[in-house]
Design a protein around this nucleic acid. Sequence first.
DNA 1: GCAGTAAGTGGTCATCGTGTCCACTTATCT
DNA 2: AGATAAGTGGACACGATGACCACTTACTGC
Lengths: 188, 188
Amino acid sequence: MLATMRKERADAARNRAKVLTAAAELFAAKDPRTVTMDDIAKAAGVGRGTLYRRYPDIASIAVALLDEHERRLQRDLLEGPPPLGPGAPPVDRLAAFYAAMVDLLETHGDLALATEVGGRRFEVGAYRFWRAHVLSLARAAGIASPDPLADILLAPLAPDVFAHQRGQGLSPDQVKTALTRLASVLTD
Amino acid sequence: MLATMRKERADAARNRAKVLTAAAELFAAKDPRTVTMDDIAKAAGVGRGTLYRRYPDIASIAVALLDEHERRLQRDLLEGPPPLGPGAPPVDRLAAFYAAMVDLLETHGDLALATEVGGRRFEVGAYRFWRAHVLSLARAAGIASPDPLADILLAPLAPDVFAHQRGQGLSPDQVKTALTRLASVLTD
DNA sequence: GCAGTAAGTGGTCATCGTGTCCACTTATCT
DNA sequence: AGATAAGTGGACACGATGACCACTTACTGC
């Protein structure tokens, strides 16, 4: 019952790669929220059916592209060196997390925006991970009821918020500084 | 040049009212983000063209409905009694603003969600007002560069964030408490 | 009152994106 | 080589958008 699983067909793997690179280029080229399934299919040179076989919607494609970058950060948060990883005070760890997320948004903000279509932001796995992390930091800081605070502390990292700030002429460093101040709510 | 302006026709005013009440009911009845122009036109008993004459999109209708409620809060912020209005310390004013916004979201969250379609959240007039208010509070608190902080402090009030928190079982009071803690970043 | 006029009305139309479906092709296993 | 299931891609139906325009109606100045 475990030997019956065929490995992925070679042409399927090739198409998967073509789809992902084509999608990445499209997301980077124009407003990610206006990219359509048809655009990606055409750019990748595959049919729409092929696209829908693996990805139910645009957001899934963007999530697949973001995945590897997010995984690295997630690993660093769990077992990397302080202040990102364990060992530093909660306030510093939160500030470090904020800074890392700003870097992530700065380099892959287009993908992050694309994952937002349909308003599924809170349902993707990554959000739950970030939330669990912030929640544990808040607990470690001795916050009484940290649950409502977790979503509040994550809200400023919403892709559209960051994009808006960048569009207003704010630099990533300015945002990082402001977020570091925000992290101080874990003091007391 | 001022006598040449005709007043609004009686039937137009009647239709405007029919549209607004019908839209309010629809937004309250189902997920506001799934309400369509056709739905509203049908429910109001008018044609689609009539709808588009005054409102370019769904968000405009929701904005029109939210407007009066938001205006009252805006007036209180500018000239109401403390701690909402002038007179109290910035931290307390921010906390009071947060509490008032939670109440607004609790009673009219459906409209707030409807104004978000198309991702125009930062372009509507209300956002600029809230931002200017928070900005002035941050300045009054002696924050060095308050501009990046303003958007960050407003992010937790995004309609979808609040809706998500409510959906997770959090009560308005819990959210208010957490936001009050957040307001303490204006201390120092 | 009574035209004249412009605002208002409502249905139709073209367009676009979505997601499903299915007949056909092709890689992989035996 | 033949069987089999995975994979492919184009066609299709559907739903929503927003523009368009011929018709109607309420206000205007005479």
